[in-house]
Every structure is written in C-alpha cells, then in structure tokens.
C-alpha cells in the first residue's frame, strides 16, 4: 500500500457532491458576473493543510478528471494535496503552470508570472487558466477601480496582498481579451471574481 492510501486522502471532500458543487458553482457564477463584488461563501470541504478550503471548494465544483491543477510552490511542497485532489475531484496535479486549467495559490505572492499561464487561442479563448488565489482580506489593499461587463458604473476593489506589479500583469491580461485568464479571489468566508473582461484602473476613482 502506498503512502497515499492513508485515510486522510479519502475524507474532507464534499459531503453531498451534487448539491455542494451546484451551490458553489452558483456563487462562482455570480462572482464572475459581478466582478469585484464580494460574495459570501462558507467552505464545505476540509482539505488537508495547507490547501485553502474555499479554493478547494471551487476546484471541487469546477474541476474533474479532464482538468489539471497547478499548485503554487507553497502548496505543492506538501505531499498530500496532489493525492487528495485527485481522489476528491478527479483532477490531476501538474508541475507545469502552462498546462494547468486551474491554478491554486496560497497568496498572491506565490502566483507564477501570469504570462506563464494558458490564455487560450483566438479560436478557442476558453482554453485558458482559471486562477484561484487566497488573499488575507478583501480590503486594505492597493485600491483599483473596475469597470466593464457586469459592473454598472464603477466598482472599487482593494484585496489585501495584491502588489502593484501583479495589478499591472492583470491590466495586461485584460488587454488580451477575448483571450486571458480569469481570477477568483478567496478570503475567509467570501470570494470575488475578476474575469478577463474587466477593465482595471489602478488607484481610486
């Protein structure tokens, strides 16, 4: 028996896979439809440390056997997450961020450069990565102003821990539209979406 058959690989997933994944999917849909609005979402999974539970909830709702997940170095160091994710979600863990459908990061600082991620192709813009990143909080960070589809006029957004260079990368990401990555921020018991379609202006409106 390999190390991975240890019991904790098998517990901590969704208790009611169908209902749980549908509920999480619904909130993720809302978050991406209303960029920058903070949507409450309580974690339903209890993954092994150091996986962030909310990020895992979203992965469990969206990922399956046919998708791959890249874990940031801080998460990939631990042995359990890959086996746990594979058993609970079916997704395989990849060491190459360029081939990942999902990128999970413990913090904005541990994200790989966004230019390394799949941004899709002009005829298949859907073949791009979805980034799920944990932030300490949804306020207190460098303020930016969002506009675009799903935002009435402007939306203020200031997640903690997102550096100026990362915001600049996200501005560049929007310029690739319709290609580009989509980002979901998670913190505590809430999430916020930042799809590629959102225009980002650094600073307060």
């Amino acid at each position: 028996m390999t190390l991975e058959t240890r019991a904790d690989t098998f517990s901590g997933g969704f208790l009611r896979p169908v209902f749980d994944s549908q509920s999480v999917f619904r909130i993720v849909l809302d978050a991406l439809a209303r960029p920058g609005q903070v949507k409450p979402l309580a974690a339903r999974t209890s993954p092994p440390k150091p996986l962030p539970p909310l990020a895992v909830d979203i992965t469990a709702a969206l990922a399956d056997q046919e998708t791959s997940v890249y874990l940031c170095p801080a998460l990939a160091k631990a042995k359990t997450p890959a086996g746990w994710l594979r058993f609970q979600t079916g997704a395989s863990v990849t060491a190459n961020p360029a081939e990942a459908d999902f990128v999970i990061a413990a913090s904005p600082q541990t994200l790989p450069p966004l230019s390394q991620l799949a941004v899709g192709m002009p005829d298949y813009p859907d073949r791009s990565a979805t980034v799920i990143v944990a932030v300490p909080s949804f306020d207190g960070g460098l303020p930016v102003t969002l506009s675009g589809p799903g935002i009435k006029n402007q939306q203020a957004f200031a997640p903690d821990g997102v550096s100026l260079p990362l915001w600049q990368q996200l501005v560049a990401n929007h310029a690739l539209y319709p290609r580009g990555i989509d980002v979901i921020f998670v913190s505590g018991e809430a999430i916020a979406g930042l799809p590629r379609s959102t225009q980002i202006e650094i600073g307060e409106a």
Partner: peptide, 11 residues
C-alpha cells in the same frame, strides 16, 4: 480482451 485501468491511489 481484458480491460485494465490504473487505480492511482493503489499504484
């Protein structure tokens, strides 16, 4: 013919 699959948890 036999159908064989790998069970990753068992290796």
């Amino acid at each position: 013919v036999d159908v064989e699959v790998e069970i990753p948890e068992l290796g």
